[in-house]
Write a protein that binds this DNA or RNA. Structure first.
Lengths: 233, 233
DNA sequence: TAAACGCATTGACAGTTATCAATTACCTCC
DNA sequence: GGAGGTAATTGATAACTGTCAATGCGTTTA
């Protein structure tokens, strides 16, 4: 099964028993902030946003959840972020109770989840590096690079097409501004600035063609470069 | 044993066998970036910084490690951050090999580590919220609040003294600037601005008296407020 | 003790971003 | 096809931050 590829056959059979596929339309809230959801999920298709809801009703996006990612909490205790569907999403859900019981029985699964979590933590720290860039255009470049690295094998998000790299921006400019800690207008200007420099070309607001990967990496701070061994230059 | 309080007695006995106390002077590099350290550690005393070293030799601080925190990687694979002592530190080290073996035998320990990691992830996302603030003074206020919440019970870092809250800033202005994604001068100005507003008073550069906790929380974005139930107002 | 040094703070100006306003592009619905 | 609505872009100005320079403060060193 996709989220658990690499695990032993009998374990996967057990997991399939407690797994339920679900589909939600765009703009659905899958998990409210503070809610003690009774499952965690794996994304097969679609994009979701992790969001902190403020007291005044506004929200701050703290991350995206895309194909191949997992979301939700393994243990009880209210979720510290809300999970909202950006597009229609189809997911696999695993009830927490049975899953926890399975973990208790299977050191293999326990260990597997531990490593997933450590990878998550590393990725979150990588993202922090992007956010620490002072200029918006640098953070935007960082976002594009992170997208490439993380979803390099998700064909409809990142596609290498006869020498040119095409990236699908999975969220609106408004959400992107929240994610990057700035405003819509600044995001727009940053796109324009990168385009003017000949680094990217915005075919549509949601479809970016990267014309100069090397300079995009430089713009992003250069420090993510060593993560891009799999990315052709 | 401190880092594992709550675990069963026999398990703790096993852990004590593979534990070694160490002390390092200030400005020591405990773990280089990319190094596959053979242990992970628990901090008993002192402050360390997590740092990403750039190709040009400059560093970007991505977090602090203080009393009660753990650091280093549970599994093999080069560390993605360097760990450097800011002050003299005394730590407990656990060799990775034996520890991993113990985890494989003990679901209790495995589960314990899983929960520690999830807490770490939540804290990292909290910190991201701070970094997403646009103004430096807001990020600085956020830093102070996070410090209070995280180390409320570490007496020499956060002390509530007959109605006034005293916070020890554990790092230099220069390191603080890196941590907040800005420059030394801006940090200095942010301290001055908060002081001018009557929110804080800088007794020394390393000793801050908070005069108006409520307004400090507001300045920090207000959204961390619900984490501060334990903090008197 | 004086000089030298590192660190923090403050000032002046240039560069970047936030904010408000206006315009354009695009999609939906009639 | 045209009207209305939403999202994206662009422009102008104020607010904030980065940079360079100078000053103050405390500690170390000769």
């Amino acid at each position: 099964m996709e989220p658990f590829s690499g695990l032993s056959q009998p374990l996967i059979a057990e997991l399939e028993k407690i797994c339920a596929p679900m589909t939600y339309p765009a703009e659905t809230t899958l998990i409210e902030m503070g809610e003690t959801s009774d499952y965690f999920g794996y994304v097969r298709r679609g994009i979701m946003r992790m969001q902190r809801i403020h007291l005044d009703g506004t929200g701050q996006i703290v991350g995206l959840v895309a194909e191949g990612d997992v979301f939700g909490s393994l243990f009880e205790g209210g979720s510290k972020v809300a999970i909202e569907a950006v597009t229609e999403v189809s997911i696999l859900t695993f009830k927490r109770g049975p899953f926890e019981a399975l973990m208790a029985r299977s050191a293999e699964l326990d260990h597997f989840m531990l490593q997933k979590l450590m990878a998550d933590l590393d990725r979150t720290r990588d993202w922090m590096l992007v956010l620490l860039n002072r200029k918006v255009s640098e953070r935007l470049a960082g976002f594009l690079v992170v997208l490439c690295i993380r979803y390099a094998n998700v064909d409809h998000l990142v596609r290498w097409d006869n020498g040119s790299l095409e990236i699908k921006v999975p969220i609106s400019r408004c959400d992107l501004a929240s994610l990057l800690g700035t405003r819509v207008e600044s995001v727009s200007r940053a796109f324009s600035a990168l385009a003017k420099k000949g680094i990217i070309h915005t075919k549509t607001p949601y479809l970016i063609e990267v014309q100069d990967v090397r300079r995009l990496l430089e713009e992003a701070g250069g420090e993510l470069t060593n993560r891009v061994t799999g990315l052709r230059t």
